[in-house]
Each structure stands twice: as structure tokens, then as C-alpha cells.
């Protein structure tokens, strides 16, 4: 039973929250604005920037400098590939832990999470050397494997928490109805867990898309995703604000738009299933 809230109180709340929200969002908004300005205007004072004319020239310049779509494709392949590969391995594992819990289940889960605590830098050298010897350095395949392994504990953990909300009786009913294990997972569990799986997929695509340790250290030219594409702007092109802004917008726009459209699933995914 909600209590009546005075309009002035509500207006005050909206103003404060809106202002703070705007401050958080401002850097993103600002680069969008800068990306449509000429290089000359982009370094002027904020007021002058807002009143100056608009142009698309920076986007053209960015695309001319290095093939944006190649990096974009790499990012998509790496993030989507690693997420779905991870899902393939995580669904059965999470099924086991959620529906056939044993004494060790909690320990196994904690151990899996603890591999996530392994600092990447601690194993950078061996992975670099192994990849060099296998010839998968600077390939999408290599990054898919690394990012899948990086995020596997998180995928398993999230699926586990979602699966646990599904009553075991429904799976037992499927078993009584003559479903094999494969049927049970395919026709009953997975469709029921779609919202949870969607959250997991979204979050992991974002984590993989933005991952900037392995993608920077294991790629050079061929497999470089957008993280590396943008890192190449650190100097001296960083001084060309309009181009840097255009490149930044192109790097973050896909994930930003996807994130906003799937906000509901994502909010749930962002909490890693650990908070209700």
C-alpha cells in the first residue's frame, strides 16, 4: 500500500537523481557530440563546441585509417563465440550442481569461482608461449578459447543460481513422462530457464566484448577486436578529439544499444544471479 507522496517531494527526487544520472552519462554523451564535430571545433571550449556546426568527416577518417568492420567482426566472433561455447559446457555442469547436489557441490562451485581469481597476468607468459607454439596467437580461435575459459566460472555460477529456482519436481515429471536426460535438458530445463540464460548470455557478451587484457596481449593485426582498435588511438591520435570520439562511439555503440534494449534481462544478469 503506497503512501501518497507530495508532488514537490517527487519533483525534488527527480531533479537530484536526474542530475546525478546525467553526470554519470555525460562522458558518453560528450563523445557522441564530439564525434560529429570537426577536428578544429572539437578542442574548443565546451560552449563553442555546442554552438559549432555538425559533420560526419571523422567517421570517414576513422574508417579510412583502419577497417572498422574487420575489428567489429572480430569483436562479435570473439564475444558471441566464447559465450556460446561456454554455455555449451556450462549448462550440463549447472544442471548437475543444481539438481543432483552432492556433498562436494558447494566446494566444486567455490573452486570454479576461485579460478576466476587467478590473475590473468600470472599465466600470461605460458599462455602466450602455448599459443605461439600452437600457432593460434592473434587468431579469433585463440581468443574464443581464452575468453570462454575466463568467463566459464561466471556462466556456470549464474546458470546454477537460475536453475536452482526451477522446481526439481518438473524435471522429475519429465522423467516420469519418459524423457531421457537429453530430452529433459533440451525440452524442459532449457526453455524454462530462457530468461536466466538470456541474462547470462548478455552479461558474458558484454564482459567478453570489453575484455581488454587478453585481447590486447594476444592479438596484433589479424584478430584485433575493437578494444585493440581503440587502444591504437592512445597516441598520438589521442590528440585528434573528433576522430578519437568517432572511433570510440563506433566501438561502444553496438554493446550500448544492445544493453539498453535488453535492460530487463541485463539488470538481472548484472547482479550475477546473486542478488534478488
Amino acid at each position: 500500500m503506497a503512501r501518497a507522496v507530495s508532488t514537490s517531494r517527487k519533483t525534488f527526487n527527480t531533479a537530484i537523481a536526474g542530475l546525478l544520472g546525467f553526470v554519470m552519462f555525460f562522458p558518453v554523451l560528450w563523445i557522441v557530440i564530439l564525434s560529429f564535430k570537426s577536428e578544429f571545433d572539437a578542442i574548443r571550449s565546451p560552449l563553442a563546441i555546442l554552438t559549432s556546426g555538425w559533420t560526419l568527416e571523422s567517421y570517414g577518417a576513422v574508417q579510412a585509417r583502419s577497417d572498422y568492420f574487420k575489428h567489429f567482426t572480430n569483436s562479435v566472433v570473439i564475444s558471441v563465440g566464447s559465450t556460446f561455447l561456454g554455455l555449451l559446457i556450462a549448462v550440463p555442469a549447472a544442471w548437475s550442481m543444481a539438481f543432483v547436489p552432492a556433498k562436494r557441490t558447494r566446494g566444486v562451485l567455490m573452486w570454479m569461482l576461485s579460478t576466476k581469481m587467478l590473475p590473468p597476468v600470472g599465466v600470461l607468459v605460458p599462455i602466450y608461449l602455448i599459443f605461439r607454439d600452437l600457432g593460434i596467437l592473434d587468431t579469433n580461435l585463440g581468443l574464443v578459447i581464452v575468453l570462454m575459459l575466463m568467463n566459464l566460472p561466471i556462466i556456470i555460477w549464474m546458470l546454477y543460481t537460475y536453475f536452482r529456482e526451477i522446481p526439481g519436481e518438473i524435471l522429475e515429471a519429465a522423467r516420469m513422462d519418459g524423457a531421457s536426460l537429453r530430452d529433459e535438458v533440451l525440452y524442459v530445463l532449457t526453455p524454462m530457464a530462457v530468461p536466466g540464460i538470456a541474462s547470462t548470455v548478455l552479461l558474458n557478451i558484454i564482459l567478453a566484448w570489453n575484455e581488454a587484457f587478453w585481447t590486447l596481449n594476444l592479438t596484433a593485426a589479424r584478430a584485433a577486436p575493437l578494444t585493440a582498435f581503440i587502444a591504437s588511438y592512445s597516441s598520438p591520435e589521442g590528440l585528434f578529439y573528433a576522430k578519437l570520439s568517432a572511433a570510440s562511439v563506433m566501438a561502444i555503440a553496438p554493446i550500448l544499444i544492445m544493453g539498453w534494449f535488453s535492460q530487463k534481462q541485463l539488470v538481472r544478469g548484472l547482479t550475477f544471479g546473486a542478488v534478488k
Binding site: G21, N210, S245, I252, L256, L270
Partner: peptide, 25 residues
Amino acid sequence: VIRIMVIAPFFVMPTVSALVWKNMF
């Protein structure tokens, strides 16, 4: 809307946010 604005930075990849803050701000 406010929530969308607040979440936005999470989607920005670290390399972008670092470069943007370093140069433009």
C-alpha cells in the same frame, strides 16, 4: 530513463573510457 543513464558507463570498454577521460576530460 535515469537508470539507463546511470548504467551506461558499464557498457563502455576500458580502453575507450580511459582514452576519453585522459584526452577529452
